[in-house]
Design a binder for these strands. Sequence first.
DNA 1: ATATTACTGAGTAATTTACTAGGATATGCT
DNA 2: AGCATATCCTAGTAAATTACTCAGTAATAT
Lengths: 129, 129
Amino acid sequence: MLFTTKTEYGLKALGFLAKSKLKEPVSLGEISRQTGISLSYLEQIFSKLKKGGVVLSLKGADGGYVLARSAKQINLFDIIESIEGDLEIFYCMANGGCSSRGCLTKKVWVDLQGTITKTLKKYKLSDLI
Amino acid sequence: MLFTTKTEYGLKALGFLAKSKLKEPVSLGEISRQTGISLSYLEQIFSKLKKGGVVLSLKGADGGYVLARSAKQINLFDIIESIEGDLEIFYCMANGGCSSRGCLTKKVWVDLQGTITKTLKKYKLSDLI
DNA sequence: ATATTACTGAGTAATTTACTAGGATATGCT
DNA sequence: AGCATATCCTAGTAAATTACTCAGTAATAT
């Protein structure tokens, strides 16, 4: 499985956020009610999305989250990278690169990584709503 | 992680098989000695590769495995599909397709799936040795 | 016969995933 | 000031997956 449920839920939640025409922040409680995703799980996901610069937050009463920029300017790579971290395709690449001389997979890995990245950058959050 | 160690080891082992100029079958014991991968794990991997039509086997003394066709005619998609089964990128696709009307990810999934498949079909086993 | 090999299925330890729980901290409202 | 509503932060845990090992059976060349 390339992506976890966090990415799936994250996309769903962000889609909901993007649809909200209000300029006011939307609380995770509201998103939770509308999407069925648990509040505490949403908190984990949005913490990553905030660190990744995809959303902005406002604490306190009437607080919540807003997209950091328009849905047209947020691509899926931004979102997925925020949530999943760097995609690692082969174990031999996991620790800062393959060091064994006989490694056969590096070339493919680099190509595949690039291909996936390119595809994910092609899609914007606005394409999903 | 897109692929497991089985794929990594499988590629390594197949690379070794492809390099062997002998037309005689190579035993997993030999591959194990040369690659450091345990015999029993290789057995699991080659069982899948055989089911997937990538290798042929010969039982008994002096038996072993041979590539089912030339290394130029075996692409990485064949190998990886044999070992990993179908790639599933999102959970919502796991059970025979996403059924919820509001699913946002199907379009991307299909595209990404196609992109990955295409890239993997581009590379042949012979490219890796 | 015996050694050598593929083949099979079950079992297990480690890791990752998918969550939940409990609190601390910030902010608007009365 | 104090309460309700939020984000934020750190652990913890159950289920699933991964990464193997082990013990045995079946086939075949010598």
